[in-house]
Nucleic acid binder design. Sequence first.
DNA 1: TGAAACAAACCGACCGTCGGTCTATTTATA
DNA 2: TATAAATAGACCGACGGTCGGTTTGTTTCA
Lengths: 228, 228
Amino acid sequence: MVRTKKPPEVRSNELIDCAERLFFQHGYENTTVNDVIQAANVSKGAFYHYFVSKEALLEAVATRLAQRNLEALQPLIGDPSLDAVGQLNALFAGSRRMKLEMASQLKNTFNALFKPENVALYHRIDEALLAVSIPLVAEILRRGHAEGTLDAPDPEAAASMLLQLRVSVARVMHKALQRYEAGDLEGAAAMLDGWMRTYGTAIERFLKLPDGSIEATEPRFSRAFLEA
Amino acid sequence: MVRTKKPPEVRSNELIDCAERLFFQHGYENTTVNDVIQAANVSKGAFYHYFVSKEALLEAVATRLAQRNLEALQPLIGDPSLDAVGQLNALFAGSRRMKLEMASQLKNTFNALFKPENVALYHRIDEALLAVSIPLVAEILRRGHAEGTLDAPDPEAAASMLLQLRVSVARVMHKALQRYEAGDLEGAAAMLDGWMRTYGTAIERFLKLPDGSIEATEPRFSRAFLEA
DNA sequence: TGAAACAAACCGACCGTCGGTCTATTTATA
DNA sequence: TATAAATAGACCGACGGTCGGTTTGTTTCA
């Protein structure tokens, strides 16, 4: 193979790019290190120069994903006129917008993440997302608690628990997607919509907010997402 | 090797026994099929006669674990004089009692489950526990909603979300354990206790119960568990 | 009654794959 | 030109899984 040298971060990013694509496309366990280095056009020596193990590569993929997620979320809560509840709603609204924009990509992601050969991938990504999200949400809760707009005596714990609820939503989103693909749009949309509402209600009640304060979803979102 | 024949379910249970022990002791990925068959004194052929893959063995371990957990929990809510909230509290109280009784074993389990080589083990067990627990809790919520003692319009979704919160608690339990082992009993107990309270509060609020209805923990539990 | 036929349980040598190692070589830079 | 970083790719050992066969118990029927 021709010997080409590139700036380290370019190479390692290329490897992460290929890995990310292959992991989601064929699954983590089904993707071999050889597949990755072949796709990246790099030797095994070069690969192990950048990553101590396949596991480390997975971690890099997850971390970069979480980092990008954070960068996408940060600006949503930048508006200084928003109170804590407004910020939470801004996060939800922004997430919905992003979900609709990247619907097809997200659907693939979901289908991939819930496959049994991807538990490691799923777990690492969940962990990384949690790690960047908890401080963000905890800070909002702290502000809200100080403002008196919501009640969260232990912001870190509350943030962790609130974010944990995402998992239930993600799971039902996956189920709804399968149901949609099986032809049952109505059932899928109804199920997803119901759970999203429950999700919003759970957050409201946990934070002692008035009914309807949290807009975890909006009227036509579930259908739109499924059909997108 | 001498050829010994046993009733199929005895053999497969022996294999699951050995696997369970080895998985928790050395980790899922660190345990080879050869380790298992050696421990069970069985040939490779016999193993693959019972399980199509190592993965299938893991699933069997997780399923059996969840099943046993369910059988331990069922009797706790048998008292017909209990209302739904009483049943929930009975579950919590029973879980605490069991946790204290099997403290040392549980600590090992926790330490094992959170190791990176055990994501698959963790995930499968979590999944299996969720699968048996959701119907149980949903049924309690349904009853409570009918009784009017609590508010849970969508029992399945609510049960799923409530149970999801366990993960946060489990995670902090693990952290607390590490902290305790590092010598900081006070800090560990305080952290664990705080989160358990928050956990109870989250459930109360979500189900629209009066403050203090749910006893997710009791005064000296955290310390007792850590020191046990 | 007993032997032939059959199915389930079991054995262990063997295989292909895959993550990871190692030595050699090239490239950039001080 | 010395040194370290980067790259190449042959190679290794372990592991999950396969396969051809053997043993054991049970059923069938002359």
